[in-house]
Amino acid sequence: MTATAEKPAEAGAIPSMTVTLKILRFDPDGLDGREAGTEYWEEFTVEAHATDRVLDALHKIKWEQDGSLAFRRSCAHGVCGSDAMRINARNRLACKTLLKDLNPAKPIMVEPIKGLPVEKDLIVDMEPFFASYREIMPFLMTTGTAPERERLQSPEDRARFDDTTKCILCAACTTSCPVFWTDGQYFGPQAIVGAHRFIFDSRDEGEWDRLEILNDKAGVWKCRTAFNCTEACPRGIEVTKAISEVKHALNTGEI
C-alpha cells in the first residue's frame, strides 16, 4: 500500500505550472570566480504545482539544478521557525507560503530576512536575535518553595497570555521592523513577545524585572507601531497588541 504523496488530494485537478524564482544570493566562499562576500541575483525556473510551497520550489532548485543554494528548513509545515525569508518583499515562512497565493505571472522574489548579517544565500546569523531573547529572561521566575502538585491557574488566567506562547522564534517580526533595521540597539518585537508571555502569566513573579529591561533605551519605547510585525507573524500572533499591553503596564503600573 502506498500513500498518495505523488498525487495529492485532487490529483489531476491540480494544475502544474512553470514558476520563476529570483533569488538574492550571497557567496561567502568566493567560488566560480566571484569574490568572497559577493551578493547577486539569480533566476531559476521550475515546474511546480499550484499547491506546492515556496519551500518545495526551493528544494526543486537545490535538488535538481544547483545544490549550492543554501537555506534552512526542517519541519516543512510552519512549526519550527527555520525558514523565515523575504518573499515578494514580505517576511514569510517558505513552508507556509503556497505558490498559488503568489502572482505566477511575475518572478517570485526571494531574499534573506533583513537586519541580521547574511551568512550564505538565504541563511542569516540568528545569534543577535537569540541574544535579545535571552536578555529578557524568558523563563518562569517564582519565589518560595514550589508546591507539591501543579501551581493552579484558572482557564481565564491561562488565556491571558495564550497568544504569545505560540511564538516559534522565526524572527519574521523582528526582521520586518523598520526600527530594528536602522537602530542597532533595539531588541525588536520578538523579545517583547517573549517577555509578554511571562509578564502576563499569573504564576510568574519576575514581571517587574522584565518590564524594567523593556523600559530601557533598547526596549519597548522604540516601537513606532508600524504593524509590520503583526502582518509578518506566521503564527498569527498579535504582536503589536502584545507590545501595547506591555507599554500599558509600564504606564499604569498595572498588569
Binding site: 493552579l152 484558572s154 491561562r158
Partner: peptide
C-alpha cells in the same frame, strides 16, 4: 514528569479548578 514541566512554566490547558 508532568508536574516538573508545569513547575518549569509549561502553559498546560487547565480545568475549571485550575489544574492541568
Amino acid at each position: 514528569a508532568v508536574l516538573d514541566l508545569e513547575k518549569m512554566g509549561l502553559p498546560f490547558n487547565r480545568t475549571p479548578e485550575g489544574k492541568v
